[in-house]
């Protein structure tokens, strides 16, 4: 999908530039993009490395496990077929708490394990309500401190890189609530269709 978009952007841009006589800017654009990316990686990538270091400390010291314990009641409230203290409940809690801290490297493996556990209850490869909900929750961001974004803002000379945090929290929270509600609504509608 992205591969096709990429090819078309390059082809269309070159074609448009030929037609409008912008070809000099385009040839500069290739180099500007390449060096822009290297610059980006040096500045923002450096911060990503720092943050991963800090987050591994949070993981190894047991701080992120503490967070996942707090999530237990919420998970059994949202996922109707997941029992308290079960394997899948723990995996889902690990996934969500890792996402909240921005540990995407730790969130993906536990998320995949959780999905495999949840899929044991599915039939014929049809996703269950809980699987859909879990995927939808993961597509909405729950990150408390968007570290990469803040680093990007700093590197682009923002006067106050952290000013976006409160709007980010508001929007993330509303989106998460919206996503859960829409998913529950679709599940209800689908019940007749899939469970006959």
């Amino acid at each position: 999908m992205l591969g096709i978009i990429w090819v078309f952007i390059i082809l269309l841009s070159c074609l448009y530039a030929f037609l409008t006589g912008n070809i000099n800017q385009v040839s500069e654009g290739f180099f500007a993009g390449a060096s822009g990316c290297v610059e980006f990686v040096l500045k923002v990538g450096a911060f990503m490395v720092l943050w991963q270091g800090i987050l591994l400390v949070a993981q190894k010291s047991g701080l992120s496990q503490k967070l996942s314990k707090l999530l237990g009641p919420l998970i059994s409230f949202l996922f109707k077929d997941v029992k308290k203290e079960s394997t899948e409940a723990n995996l889902i809690a690990n996934n969500i708490s890792a996402n909240m801290l921005g540990l995407s490297n730790a969130a993906t493996p536990s998320g995949i394990e959780a999905m495999k556990e949840l899929s044991k209850k599915s039939k014929n490869g049809i996703a269950t309500d809980d699987m859909c909900l879990f995927a939808v929750i993961n597509t909405a961001s729950m990150q408390l401190v968007p570290s990469t974004l803040i680093a990007m803002r700093v590197s682009h000379g923002s006067q106050n890189a952290g000013e976006i945090l409160i709007p980010v929290w508001i929007v993330s929270f509303l989106t998460l609530v919206f996503a859960i509600c829409v998913c529950k609504l679709f599940s209800k509608r689908g019940e007749k269709k899939w469970h006959k």
Binding site: G125, A135, V136, L174, A179, V182, F186
Partner: peptide, 28 residues
Amino acid sequence: VAAVYFGASKTKNIRHSLKCGLLADLFS
């Protein structure tokens, strides 16, 4: 996210997941 999670769990029919995810994106 949908590709990774449903790919790993070998789910063929993801039902309303993608629709909800994209609706949530639009909302956000």
